[in-house]
Amino acid sequence: MNILEVEKLKTYFFTEAGVVKALDDISFSIPKGSTLGLVGESGSGKTVTAQSVLRIVPKPGKIVGGSIFFEGEDLLPKKEGEMRKFRGKKISLIFQDPTSSLNPLFTIGEQLGDIVVQHMKLKKSEAKEWVIKTLKLAKLPDPENAIHSYPHQFSGGMKQRICIARALLLSPKLLFADEPTTNLDVTIQAQIIALLKDLQRDLGMTLVMITHDMGIVADMCKWVVVLYAGNVMEIGPIDKIFEEPHPYTEALLKAIPRLDQTKELVFIPGNIPNLIDPPSGCKFHPRCQYAKEICKEKIPSLEDIGDGHFVSCHRWKELNNRG
């Protein structure tokens, strides 16, 4: 069973310089109870995907087409008031920067308590208990006193634990974690990753890890969706993606630094394309080492190559000796 099915989703930003096609016809689905990695470089549309699912795309962005089915219900035709019942309760989001995602004026208890009181109609004392319980779940030390403290009193890692607790307050079924470790130092990163893994397992949530770190993906995810310039490049189970990757995924994998590395680090030449005027054909072709004439001319379609593995590449079969 899939908890989320995204079909032909298009989210455009109508800027003064032109229309930025941040998500251009993307489709993927997330099996219930699994951990999925949403991978790509900066600007590939990872965050916009999460924002689109929650329908909180900032202006001048707008969802212009497609459908998003959450447990079989299409979210896009829903009115704002109905949509609000999904946010936090069914689908939740953890932000990249824990510091700026907490309101500096209120204590942790006030901020988190507010959400509980608003949505769960609990009394203040019950809400406090609930907040403390959830903070414990996120392994924040000393939650009884922490609720009387302001965000600036916590370290980055502790703030991220608070943000994780906030996202879990209303027991969502689907949790997006938008690069939750990017702003933390390495030892804390490992702790947060371990915490998210435990929470996903213990609460039976579906977790979407938005990241550009293939190491985290290999560690956590069963399924991977690779985005590039607003297109899905590849979808598949983790082992297939590491075995027979799309040329873009292959380039991403090569760019991971290794301890036993003797040569210089490999990087992907060039930059992510301008999305107002993207390259013709396959959007990755200007940076692809395998690109041929056909890649410039024709947009490849997402092809099912078996075992739940989908690839959008003209040359994949040839490169992997499959026909």
Binding site: L54, I56, S101
Partner: peptide, 18 residues
């Protein structure tokens, strides 16, 4: 309006008035 905690509040189902 552009700060992340407003976005976060929205992602948790807060209304505009709230």
């Amino acid at each position: 309006k552009e700060t992340e905690y407003i976005q976060a509040s929205k992602s948790l189902g807060a209304s505009s008035r709230w």
